[in-house]
Design a protein around this nucleic acid. Structure first.
Lengths: 294, 294
DNA sequence: CGGAATATTGAGGGTCATCAAATGTCGTGG
DNA sequence: CCACGACATTTGATGACCCTCAATATTCCG
């Protein structure tokens, strides 16, 4: 609902509901409590005086900033549709991507403490964002203990997500990080009604690498390695996941020496004029080649 | 106040107030709102019905768990004194230390979202912990908008801290991480009345390494390198900071090749029978040697 | 269509993990 | 009190992994 204008959304929406108002370029300007609670996946049922709250939508185009670091805080934001990145910049000027908010995600929370945002949020695609004035956010909590707990819960959820991120950066191999990144994207896409198997990456290799604490080259190489192993097919921004379970349980790839030997074996076999037909872990075709075949 | 029984606290308390009830082994069992707000550094001035809230203290010895991952959530905790670690364990069994709570720090927040703690908290020393039932926490917020904002602010503060941690793990060199770790400890010790220049590490090298995303050997070697450079003196758990500013601005050490050449130069000079007296960056004495001299 | 941004892939070198050994520290029990 | 064992710390040697630099191909957008 209301995102018909966001065209580049993603491949293969699971529910191909061609947008209620098909030809219309108009989009929703206001949401009520009920809509926002649904988006955030918190109980919207019981709340009192049920329609005196209205929340404004704002549209952003790719590259635009929703807020910048140091800017005075007064709003929280909920993504209605589109993709963003949240970036922290440290005292040396290092940029670190903290998250890729998408539909249903809340951001801007980091501004509460010092009344200034400590991170900046940038649209990666066209976005439709709902504004939640912080004063209203707190007021809503006061109206209803269930909602209040839900609001604390939202912040706690974000805290847990970041703890998982710390654990990932601190204790996982690069391959495991990239695998987990893909699994996470897959699950989040599924949760908002897109395909979890075939999707387009909303971000560049540089952004993926930055997010995962590696260089863009390493990010690219790791995706290529997964492609070689047949776990995924990747071509530029498009991803197809062949073996989600392998990605979920992957800790580290076979040592590179073994990988190289395996490649050499395959190469030698190919040179000898036959294909092992059996041991080959998977066709090492790129998605484009697959599509060309189709 | 009230922590006279915690003996191993730390070296050189800045305020040598020999504990109000000096010989007494008794410690405070209850704190009121005012005490807790002071500990947390949030405004305690204006709140209504000012003494119907009392919070229980509990003591833990080194090694004991305050809560474990998966345990049902109902409490938040505030450290009155002592040192702890907060540890997350991921689905592979990897342990990642998320923080080292000390006096004035709030922990247990991660339990709010799913009503189960996702991390565990372990005492590194004798600890005196104040229990804050979550229901009471929320109720307090409802009594006073200023306090309510302060409570959201506490969670936001923790979120920002974790974002800084992610940025550190994702974009800093190992040396910069260790340097920042020392600076952070120094500042936190200062804030709670200990010396920020001379202190004892409450945690092992393994725990430091785990926290910073490196092995214990790398943590140890990096501390030794800082010692060689004269930035700090380190001997086992005791730290003396010689050049806090250098630690604050350090991004990376001179490349190891240059360091080795420098060492060789010094060694050659020493073999030749004289000391450069000038270029020597600092005496490479350990703290123990320094103390022995005194 | 052309230029800028993005992505892929290779070669080489530095950093850090791993394995290993020696020393130091601390608590416990003989 | 000392001996013992468990654990913590330091330091060295080696190699895997990832960063850096570089060249090329592809895509995107005006």
């Amino acid at each position: 609902m209301s995102c018909a204008n966001i065209l580049e959304s993603n491949t293969a929406p699971a529910t191909p509901s061609r947008a209620a108002a098909s030809g219309s370029r108009t989009h929703k300007i206001w949401s009520n409590m009920h809509d926002v609670c649904n988006l955030l996946r918190i109980p919207s049922a019981t709340f009192i005086g049920d329609d005196d709250h209205h929340f404004q939508h704002v549209q952003f185009k790719a590259g635009q900033r929703i807020h910048t670091a140091g800017q005075a805080f007064d709003m929280l934001y909920v993504v209605n549709c589109g993709f963003l990145k949240s970036v922290m910049i440290d005292e040396f000027g290092n940029e670190q991507i903290l998250s890729f908010p998408m539909k249903g995600d809340l951001f801007g929370i980091d501004g509460i403490h010092t009344k200034k945002y400590t991170s900046e949020a940038v649209a990666l695609s066209s976005c439709d964002i709902i504004l939640i004035p912080f004063s209203k956010f707190a007021a809503i909590g006061r109206t209803n203990p269930v909602l209040e707990t839900a609001l604390y819960g939202l912040m706690s959820r974000e805290l847990i997500r970041e703890q998982g991120m710390i654990t990932m950066l601190g204790s996982l191999t690069v391959e495991a990080r990239v695998a987990r990144f893909l699994v996470s994207l897959s699950e989040r896409f599924s949760a908002i009604g897109y395909s979890g198997k075939a999707f387009n990456l909303p971000m560049t290799r540089r952004e993926i690498g930055n997010y995962l604490g590696v260089t863009l080259e390493t990010a690219s190489r790791t995706l290529s390695a997964f492609n070689e192993l047949g776990l995924i097919s990747v071509d530029q921004r498009s991803i197809y996941i062949h073996d989600l379970n392998a990605l979920k349980t992957l800790r580290r790839l076979p040592p590179s020496r073994a990988r190289i030997e395996q490649q050499e074996k395959r190469a030698a076999a190919a040179a000898a004029g036959y294909l092992p037909t059996q041991q080959q872990p998977a066709p090492s075709t790129t998605m484009r080649e697959q599509m060309a075949v189709v």
